[in-house]
């Protein structure tokens, strides 16, 4: 598969539209000034994920996942190192939270943040492309990247869009990652559709 610079730019723009919307919602919900940016977008092989430096830095990760099926199938995921997840929740709720101290209510809160970001990004893509997808219920997962990905469907995945997302909450700076993991052939179909809409070819 050949992913051109234009394609990556188009993906970055779609994701940026989504996260911009998500940041607006989070601002509105929490009354806190939140900026959400995606400074870096890369496309990599699913099999290379466990070796990706950004994802193995923190051995324990927290993820909010969203499976989707349709013209292109896969999984969207907002992923944080454990410490960053706690910092983000603390910043959004004003609570004092120790690293690794995510109880049921805090996990639910993180789940909502992930849901807002995932929904906004997926909404941005599907709106622009005029596609409809079927989604599963959002799910919270914890562990290493391998634990989070699970074994059962790993053979079905092919390419991954890794978008580094940077939350700036007042003077606090939290980095997470948006992963869009595509089943075999799904990224090609997405890029074709982006090409068709933007008048570029993948």
């Amino acid at each position: 598969m050949n992913v051109t610079g234009e394609s990556v730019d188009a993906i970055r723009e779609l994701i940026n539209i989504g996260v911009g919307r998500a940041a607006g919602l989070l601002n509105d919900m929490t009354g806190t000034h939140i900026r959400l940016e995606v400074p870096e977008v890369r496309v990599l092989r699913y099999t290379d994920l466990p070796r990706e430096d950004r994802l193995v830095d923190g051995s324990r990760l927290s993820a909010v996942t969203l499976m989707f099926r349709g013209p292109f199938s896969g999984m969207s995921m907002l992923l944080f190192p454990d410490k960053s997840a706690a910092v983000l929740i603390a910043a959004l709720t004003g609570e004092k939270i120790e690293e690794g101290d995510l109880d049921a209510l805090r996990i639910e809160t993180l789940n909502e943040v992930g849901n807002i970001v995932n929904n906004a990004v997926m909404g941005s893509i599907t709106n622009v492309l005029g596609e409809r997808l079927v989604y599963s219920m959002p799910e919270f997962r914890e562990g290493s990247i391998t634990d989070i990905m699970g074994e059962s469907r790993s053979g079905a995945y092919d390419w991954v869009i890794l978008a580094v997302s940077q939350f700036t909450i007042e003077d606090l700076w939290v980095v997470g990652n948006i992963l869009m993991i595509f089943e075999i052939g799904a990224l090609d179909r997405l890029l074709e559709k982006i090409g068709a809409v933007t008048g570029t070819s993948p």
Binding site: M29, E108, T109, E112, N127, L133
Partner: peptide, 16 residues
């Protein structure tokens, strides 16, 4: 609105 537009389910947490 997103839900009506065919988007994923929306979660509203107890915290917020």
């Amino acid at each position: 609105q997103q839900v009506f537009e065919g988007g994923p389910a929306a979660l509203f947490s107890t915290q917020f």
